[in-house]
Simulated assay, not measured.
Amino acid sequence: MTSLSIWCFLCRPSLELLDCLQLTEHLNKVDDTGNLKFTYETEESGSIPFLDTLIVRKPDGSVKLLVYRKATHTDQYLNFNSAHPLHHKLGVVRTLLDRKDKIVTEQEDKKNEEDHIKKALNTCGYPNWAIDKVKKEKEQPKKKTASKTIEDKTRANVTLPYIEGVTERVQRILRTHNIASSVKPHTSLRRLLVHPKDKVDMDDKTGVIYEIPCHNCPKTYVGETGRRFGTRKKEHRVESEKRMAQNYTRAARKDSQSIEMKSSIAEHASKENHLINWDNPTILATDDTRNTRWIRESIWIRRKSRPSMKESLMNSDEGAFQLSHVYDQLILRASSSSDDVIPSNKGSNGIYH
């Protein structure tokens, strides 16, 4: 059974400490399983924290609210000089000012909190104009937005990696075509330095576009699978070795070459009498979504079969997705400028060997 965390706050000055102990013990006896636990916290110096609110008792018995920060709080926020879009940084300012307006109850305390926020943000590189810009926006009355039309609800939305100076231009172009866009960080310290998961063995990878080379010629085979790569490679190998293990007369071999096989790798090995280099496959890209994985496979087949690499593939078709030849020049240009793989939705940055 999952244990529950219950927040219980009693604001009763006349309740003595002994009464609090007795009440807590009584409440904890209600649940025989022990999964429901009540605790209490006493005020210190006339104040007590609750979540991000500090409740302060005034001499006249009334209370006022302040923003609560732990003793270990560092006032470290998103640095203004970091590679994030401007509206993300302005969002930090807006969040802190909104919290000040909604929690702090007295005007003098609000001014002190605003001074604290401004000092902390200046330390994080925020210029005064950024803080003033958000304050001005907050002071302006909010316009009532009309309910979204069917066109607004159904229009396309794309997520772009943020590259300063580039993403903004792309967003402006998309807006002219009524395409909404959002951004996400492209490179972060976590992505560069932290690898919480163990490296997955190549044969255990799923949702991959792969390449298997021939041992006797430059030809390769490009394919995709949503299953374990090791399982798909084994299927290719079993069929290839099954065909190669059969003994043929000249006439029988000639007849067998006219039979279309399920695997283009097996067909190449049988017709050319070549060995397949099973020990050196390559994972070109990873993608868990079948439709986009099919598109990636077709792009890779088109890249590998460009004019400068004619007759370089064992593949007998262009993949599961019928990619329009409209994209040929774009694929050719990308192939000639770089050999890096297409970025995948698993965060792969390069080719696995």
Results as ranks from 00 to 15, higher is better:
S5M: 14
I6D: 01
C11V: 04
R12P: 00
E16F: 09
L21V: 07
T24I: 11
E25T: 06
D31C: 11
N35E: 09
L36K: 01
K37T: 10
G46K: 09
I48L: 15
F50W: 07
T53E: 04
V56Y: 05
L65D: 06
L65S: 13
L66Q: 15
D75I: 14
L78A: 06
N79S: 04
F80Q: 13
S82W: 08
A83T: 12
K89F: 11
L90K: 08
K102V: 02
E108N: 06
E108W: 10
I117K: 03
K118Q: 12
A120F: 04
A120Q: 04
T123G: 05
N128D: 09
K133G: 00
K133S: 10
V134M: 14
K135S: 14
A146V: 05
T149A: 11
E151D: 12
K153A: 08
K153D: 06
T154Y: 06
R155G: 00
R155A: 00
V158C: 05
V166A: 08
E168Y: 00
R172H: 10
S182L: 05
P185A: 08
S188T: 15
R190H: 02
D198Y: 08
D203P: 00
G207I: 04
G207R: 04
I212Q: 01
I212D: 00
P218L: 10
Y221P: 01
V222I: 15
E224L: 05
R227D: 15
R228F: 08
G230S: 08
K234I: 04
H236A: 07
V238I: 14
R243K: 12
Q246L: 14
T249W: 09
R250Q: 11
A252P: 02
R253M: 15
R253S: 15
S258N: 14
M261D: 12
S264W: 11
I265A: 03
E272H: 10
I276L: 06
W278H: 02
L284E: 07
L284C: 09
T286H: 13
R290G: 08
T292I: 09
E297W: 05
I299E: 00
K304Y: 14
S305Y: 13
P307Y: 03
M309P: 00
E311F: 08
S312C: 04
L313C: 06
M314T: 03
D317M: 01
E318D: 12
V326G: 02
L330D: 01
D339P: 00
D340A: 13
N345S: 11
N345K: 04
G350N: 09
H353T: 11
